[in-house]
Design a protein around this nucleic acid. Sequence first.
DNA 1: TTTT
DNA 2: TTTT
Lengths: 147, 147, 147, 147
Amino acid sequence: MSVNKVILVGNVGKDPEVKYLDRNVAVANFPLATTERGYKTSTGIEVPERTEWHNIVLWRGLAETAEKYVKKGSQLYIEGKLQTRSWEKDGVKRYTTEIVADVMQFLGKRADSGQDNGTVSNSQETPAAQNSFEAPASDDSADDLPF
Amino acid sequence: MSVNKVILVGNVGKDPEVKYLDRNVAVANFPLATTERGYKTSTGIEVPERTEWHNIVLWRGLAETAEKYVKKGSQLYIEGKLQTRSWEKDGVKRYTTEIVADVMQFLGKRADSGQDNGTVSNSQETPAAQNSFEAPASDDSADDLPF
Amino acid sequence: MSVNKVILVGNVGKDPEVKYLDRNVAVANFPLATTERGYKTSTGIEVPERTEWHNIVLWRGLAETAEKYVKKGSQLYIEGKLQTRSWEKDGVKRYTTEIVADVMQFLGKRADSGQDNGTVSNSQETPAAQNSFEAPASDDSADDLPF
Amino acid sequence: MSVNKVILVGNVGKDPEVKYLDRNVAVANFPLATTERGYKTSTGIEVPERTEWHNIVLWRGLAETAEKYVKKGSQLYIEGKLQTRSWEKDGVKRYTTEIVADVMQFLGKRADSGQDNGTVSNSQETPAAQNSFEAPASDDSADDLPF
DNA sequence: TTTT
DNA sequence: TTTT
């Protein structure tokens, strides 16, 4: 009964920090900037450009891809969900909102991503494969459906 | 290097048609309506309400869920991708655009969906599981309102 | 060069708080919950259900609509953007991430929203009107099911 | 009570065709390709790469921007809605599904778009302006809200 | 008909 | 802290 989805296109603020946890599970973090253009209202008021910084978190395969290919300045498409974590500092409870990514796309001209195609996701196979587990994909090809 | 995503909230036009293909792979089809309110332009012209019909296609587990729980009139959230198929009729090539769903959500009051939660997806586990890490989520549980 | 978009479907945690600022500009705030189902990993670990709370902010017309029709428990579709504000408490800088909504949809059975259709947006006319062309839409009306 | 949203990132297949209708209203059309990577299933079957072609339609200001800056090969982010039109050819009714865009973003390195920032939308001002009609934006700056 |  |  619920949907929690974030879609961002922006630029990476610094190289990812990657950690390896138990069982060698990788986690990566980096900031992503989205910038809204400034404009002038109909009443002549200047609204300045505004940059928003987003904390991106990636797990496992996506984190490993980020470690290899994401750099400060990279332009990315990110799809994920919002998650707020709490932590303590000096006895004060604080909250951080992060975007936990499921899909990461490299945009713009191929840099050195080494991917045939810029798409990566955290499903076991490619995103397309989310609809074709266990049985061969040829069986569920929509192209030969007789209707 | 690409994204193909559709997000719909609408009402089902008729009960799903479900077929079982080779290896018992299920496919379901049904029409989903989205309706844009009519309005009046600043120049006083009436733009009527407009209903758009979308061909929804679901595979495997999602198709089986649709068979059981989706009915004419159901309100659904659908996330998927656009796909255009071609077919011939009377020697004329024709095209049909469909939304192949990855995520289907039952909205509104719980009917008899039998799901604890109305969300279903075509990944092997739940959507959350796409990032599943074996570590407990309890430490950063946001179950208590942080504001 | 950037995109900052959030899409949520969830339930309102408490009645909106609405303030009127200078020039009678309305702002509304309320928490929205999204819940991810719990599941069991392939290695047998139980991942519990997880509720995420989102701070929704609405301005002007949307805030006034929220004041009238949004209640604790309402099921809503929200589309907006992420925005992080900073503020100080006890000399400590703190951050809050909010979703500033452009589109709010009432889901589920019609309560008493008083709208012909549950959609509301902050554009001057309806969302459809963003592309409003003064020509009639009747020629390409898709009101009859094309399949 | 409904949502009809499409989000695409892809490459333009040919230069836009632009027409000017009554009252000088511009309409632009072009094909946009999204490509899903091929992959191998767990049972060893090769699923080939698949390209999907989308018919993009833009009105007014967006059409004029497309006329100036969109070229064959351009990488774009498109946000819009699905719309199916019917037309007749040789006495046979046929249907075409199009994406009517509200938002168009130029991705990748700046070519010669001439925009300070690649974002364009069909609202009267910039997307940000959708939340600030009539009154100055300074009044509704979230930054000085005392809550 | 694009892109990798 | 990015990008334009």
